[in-house]
């Protein structure tokens, strides 16, 4: 009678555990380090650029709370920078779309007041886009 006879290596050994912990732990530490590092790069230089017509009226740091009156086509628009967020108030425009936009705080976000021809856009001096993915291939 023929029988199957074989011996298998172990499923999981102590060395396996060490390997998993070493590689997993080191990459987790690396990830934490990068995350911690990125906080410093991104928070500092974020600014808001305010344009009236085609001219740049002001460039403000988001970290400093300020209020600025910008002269628009229909009257003064108050731009409020507070707690790292930008909003328009008291725009004197018919639809008040700019006021309804609310607060913006991320790079690339804009508030536009078309009747007053005023625009606020958040920019960052560090190119953060290079770190994000915009596509996936498989």
């Amino acid at each position: 009678m023929r029988q199957w006879e074989f011996r298998l290596p172990k499923l999981f050994t102590f060395a396996d555990l060490l390997l998993l912990l070493a590689v997993g732990g080191s990459s987790f530490a690396f990830y934490c380090f990068r995350f911690w590092q990125s906080r410093f790069i991104e928070t500092g230089p974020t600014q808001v650029v305010i344009q009236a017509g085609k001219q740049i009226v002001a460039q403000l740091d988001l970290s400093q709370d300020t209020t600025l009156a910008v002269e628009g086509a229909l009257g003064d628009v108050t731009v409020v920078v507070s707690g790292g967020r930008v909003s328009f108030v008291n725009a004197h425009c018919p639809l008040e779309i700019c006021e309804k936009t609310g607060e913006i705080n991320h790079k690339g976000e804009v508030i536009v007041c078309a009747p007053n021809q005023i625009m606020a856009k958040i920019v960052g001096s560090v190119s953060e886009d290079s770190g994000t993915l915009d596509g996936v291939s498989r």
């Binding site: 290596p9 172990k10 499923l11 999981f12 396996d16 390997l19 998993l20 590689v23």
Partner: peptide, 17 residues
């Protein structure tokens, strides 16, 4: 070379990595 020390899981993990 590493099989008696490493088990199935370790070898498989190395392969995936």
């Amino acid at each position: 070379w590493a099989m008696p020390v490493l088990g199935f899981v370790g070898v498989s993990f190395l392969g995936a990595l």
